[in-house]
């Protein structure tokens, strides 16, 4: 794991350690151990993406700078199953890029390594079959959607993993899959007899007799698909409630804390990443777990930390869910009201 942290003097490190281990524990900015900095979130920031979100942890009010800033966007691409890379039911690819200005002290090689590490963790977690959305297929055995999740880290002020997972979850929540209608190509005048007696959704009834755009009973024989022109951008991804959230437990045995700043990260020997998903009406599922850093942990400690992590993740999940619903409301209902009021 490439070190993303800034250098720190021994005196600073020991000051941070002794502050965290004193009772009551104290952090540099006065937060308690399990407090997050304020998280800013906005969905729908990229008009050309199918879903997008911008997230900032710990931005300073008024002044522009500060905080970990992450932008995530999803883009759906059509893939050919027979001749291309497509897979039945669609597939998911994640990638994370880090802006060099977020890590000015890293060389380009080290930055590549860091991007690769972040990409691997995100991809392995989100492309898991247990999370796969059901509506990524278009035509069986012919076409499917490729869901690309691109995350850009624009600034790193600590806790970048949680930020990436939260932003990805928000972008996936925001993703709209375009509605598709299968079509079949036929020679003129050879329309199936079943097509004649039912009204078509094309405008001209006369043409409908011979239309080659009849969509019924065609799923099996359909050669291609079209995008119906409809007022919304499509339907949301199936099972969007269960995209995971990640909590990073910064472990300084025997205690641990959340949402570390860069200097705290640099002085903590061990980080435990836990990604939980919370499917409705069923117990939480641990989707991913990573230990980063040179420290050590026994199995018993790991169990205790995992149980704690689930608690924090649930809290985070509930807060994020609330914010996402609020964003949906802001962009749909309120935007419509504002438009009507003009």
């Amino acid at each position: 794991m490439a070190s993303a942290s800034t250098s720190l003097s021994k005196a600073e490190k020991s000051y941070i350690h002794s502050s965290l281990c004193s009772s009551p524990p104290l952090r540099a900015d006065g937060r308690s151990l399990f407090d997050f900095r304020t998280v800013l979130l906005e969905t729908g920031v990229a008009p050309l993406a199918n879903g997008s979100a911008k997230l900032n942890i710990g931005k300073q009010p008024h002044e522009g700078g500060g905080g970990t800033e992450v932008v995530a966007a999803t883009k759906l691409e059509v893939e050919d199953i027979e001749n291309g890379d497509g897979v039945e039911g669609g597939r998911i690819i994640c990638s994370v890029i880090c802006s060099p200005s977020a890590y000015p002290h890293l060389s380009s090689n080290a930055l590549d390594e860091l991007q690769y590490d972040l990409t691997t963790i995100l991809h392995q977690t989100l492309s898991d079959s247990s999370l796969h959305p059901p509506n990524l297929g278009i035509l069986p055995n012919k076409k499917s959607w490729l869901l690309c999740i691109d995350v850009a880290v624009l600034a790193d002020a600590g806790n970048v993993f949680d930020a990436i997972f939260m932003a990805s979850r928000a972008a996936l929540w925001d993703t709209k899959v375009p509605r598709t209608r299968p079509i079949e190509y036929q020679a003129r005048g050879l329309a199936p007899s079943g097509a004649a007696d039912v009204e078509m959704d094309t405008e001209s009834g006369q043409q409908a007799q011979k239309s080659s755009f009849d969509t019924r009973d065609m799923i099996k024989t359909a050669a291609d698909f079209e995008l119906p022109d409809y007022w919304d951008e499509g339907e949301v991804l199936g099972g969007r409630e269960q995209w995971p959230v990640c909590v990073t437990l910064n472990i300084l045995p025997p205690m641990h804390y959340l949402d570390a700043t860069p200097s705290e990260e640099a002085s903590t020997p061990l980080r435990l990443l836990l990604a939980f998903s919370f499917p409705p009406d069923s117990p939480a599922v641990l989707q991913a777990m990573r230990l980063l850093g040179p420290g050590e942990l026994t199995v018993a400690q790991l169990k205790a930390f995992t149980a704690d992590g689930e608690k924090y993740a649930r809290e985070l999940f509930a807060a994020l869910e609330g914010k996402l619903r609020e964003e949906d409301l802001r962009r749909n209902v309120k935007a419509r009201d504002r438009f009507a009021a003009r």
Binding site: S32, F34, D35, T38, L41, N56, E315
Partner: peptide
């Protein structure tokens, strides 16, 4: 404890 807010 975690709190979400909107961008300005």
């Amino acid at each position: 404890m975690i709190a979400f807010a909107s961008f300005a």
